[in-house]
């Protein structure tokens, strides 16, 4: 029972991070219909910037995270302006290749600047606390609460502010949004910034319990794709729900099935889903 609770909490922690990364991916997909394969690289850069700000600039963890959010957000915007915007009328295969090019570049760059070794990130929230008989680190609790707070904030921004509602409008109907006078460039830039920021938050939160290295984005991005396919490409609640579903499945699978193959769960899930429903679970059939 205690093991189960512990694993459920772990699932909650991993799921929170997955949900954050998947949210960024799904927002970008919703607006521009680009499956941004470079999103995992943004996540990785986010981890590094926070780490470097702490070790080199001596900033506090939280402050370092803020810097990371800004840097990665801007990097993401830069990507949209320099690469995806010029390709907006190209066949879909080109977006994907371009994104892969960025991914390869950013990984090589990270390895060039910061080396290939696995690095540990310290955290001021390393204390261990007992909650309901469970032994938890403060960092894990922080992950869960910070992620939920970010999601609520994002939800509020998208639903209750004018700027946010333009994103939703554009995701629903691009031409329509243009017709009612929404500046689609601005919306695209904003969306990419948010996506980058979410990736940076996710990476910075999880790095103290995982490790920072150039390939840290690989599995995360793949899983984020699995999540948004489960949750419906472009759907925001779908990304959150999918993130937690995968988080729980993985942590329970690792305990009760096989720790070796836990990473495979997500991919098998995706392959099963797409084999049965090639357009994803929540696709709108027909035209």
């Amino acid at each position: 029972m205690e093991l189960l609770l512990q694993q459920l909490f772990n699932g909650l922690t991993i799921g929170s991070v997955y949900a954050l990364v998947a949210l960024g991916l799904t927002l970008v997909y919703g607006i521009l219909h680009i499956p941004n394969f470079a999103h995992g690289a943004l996540y990785m850069v986010g981890g590094y910037i926070t780490l470097i700000m702490m070790t080199e600039a001596g900033l506090h963890y939280i402050l370092a995270m803020v810097v990371s959010i800004c840097v990665v957000g801007l990097l993401s915007v830069l990507m949209e302006r320099l690469v995806f915007y010029p390709l907006r009328h190209s066949p879909p295969i080109q977006d994907k290749v371009a994104a892969i090019g960025i991914l390869l570049f950013l990984e090589a760059l990270a390895q060039f600047i910061w080396g290939a070794d696995y690095r540990q990130m310290s955290t001021p929230f390393g204390q261990v606390v007992e909650v309901f008989g469970l032994t938890l680190t403060l960092q894990r609790i922080l992950i869960v609460f910070a992620a939920i707070a970010v999601m609520i904030l994002l939800y509020w921004f998208l639903k209750k502010t004018f700027t946010g509602s333009t994103i939703i409008a554009m995701a629903q109907n691009r031409e329509g949004a243009q017709l009612v006078g929404i500046n689609t460039h601005k919306v695209a830039i904003l969306t990419f910034f948010i996506a980058g920021a979410l990736a940076a938050i996710g990476a910075s939160l999880t790095s103290p319990i995982n490790l920072v290295f150039p390939g840290m984005g690989h599995l995360v991005i793949l899983k984020a794709f699995v999540i948004i396919i489960i949750g419906g490409m472009g759907s925001i609640p779908g990304a959150i729900l999918g993130g937690y579903i995968l988080g729980f499945t993985e942590s329970l699978g690792a305990t009760y099935l096989s720790a070796d193959y836990k990473d495979i769960i997500a991919f098998v899930l995706l392959i099963l889903i797409l084999s049965i429903k090639p357009q994803g679970i929540f696709s709108k059939g027909g035209v």
Binding site: S90, Q94, G101, I102, F105, L106, E107, A108
Partner: peptide, 8 residues
């Protein structure tokens, strides 16, 4: 990496 992106 950049070559790939620029070419495409």
């Amino acid at each position: 990496g950049p070559l790939l992106t620029l070419l495409i």
